[in-house]
Simulated assay, not measured.
Amino acid sequence: MMNGTHAILYSTDAEADRAFLRDVLGLPNVDAGGGWLIFQLPPAELGVHPTEGASTTELYLMCDDLDATLAGLAAKGVRPVGERVEARWGVRAYVALPSGARLGLYEARHPVARDL
Rank of each mutant, 00 (worst) to 15 (best):
M1E: 04
M2S: 09
M2E: 04
M2Q: 09
M2N: 07
N3W: 12
N3A: 10
G4L: 01
T5K: 14
T5C: 13
A7R: 13
I8L: 08
L9C: 09
L9T: 02
Y10L: 10
S11M: 10
S11Q: 14
T12L: 05
T12A: 12
D13V: 03
D13K: 15
E15I: 06
E15D: 09
R18K: 14
A19R: 15
A19M: 10
A19F: 07
A19L: 08
L21D: 07
L21M: 14
D23I: 02
D23R: 07
D23H: 09
D23A: 03
L25R: 04
P28R: 02
P28G: 03
V30Q: 05
V30H: 08
D31E: 04
D31C: 02
A32Q: 07
G33F: 04
G33A: 07
G33K: 02
G33C: 04
G34M: 06
G35R: 07
W36F: 11
L37V: 00
I38D: 01
I38P: 03
F39V: 00
L41W: 03
L41H: 05
L41M: 09
P43S: 12
P43R: 07
A44N: 08
L46A: 05
L46S: 03
G47M: 08
V48P: 01
P50S: 13
E52W: 02
G53P: 01
A54Y: 09
A54P: 02
A54K: 05
A54E: 03
A54I: 11
A54F: 09
T56V: 11
T56W: 13
E58N: 13
E58W: 15
L59C: 14
L61A: 05
M62Y: 09
C63N: 13
D65N: 14
D65H: 14
L66H: 15
L66E: 00
D67S: 14
T69W: 11
A71W: 09
A71L: 09
A71M: 10
L73T: 07
A74V: 01
K76N: 08
K76I: 11
K76T: 12
K76V: 10
G77T: 10
V78W: 07
V78S: 08
P80S: 10
V81Y: 13
V81L: 02
V81P: 03
V81R: 12
G82T: 03
E83R: 12
E83W: 11
R84S: 02
R84T: 08
E86T: 09
E86W: 03
A87V: 06
A87E: 06
R88N: 03
R88G: 04
W89P: 02
W89N: 09
W89H: 11
G90M: 06
G90F: 07
V91C: 07
A93M: 04
A93R: 06
Y94K: 14
Y94C: 08
A96R: 15
A96F: 03
L97P: 06
P98G: 07
S99G: 13
G100T: 15
A101F: 00
R102V: 01
L103W: 09
L103S: 08
L103T: 05
L105I: 02
Y106R: 06
Y106S: 05
Y106L: 10
R109D: 01
R109F: 08
P111G: 00
V112M: 03
A113I: 01
A113F: 05
A113P: 00
R114I: 01
R114W: 10
D115F: 15
L116R: 12
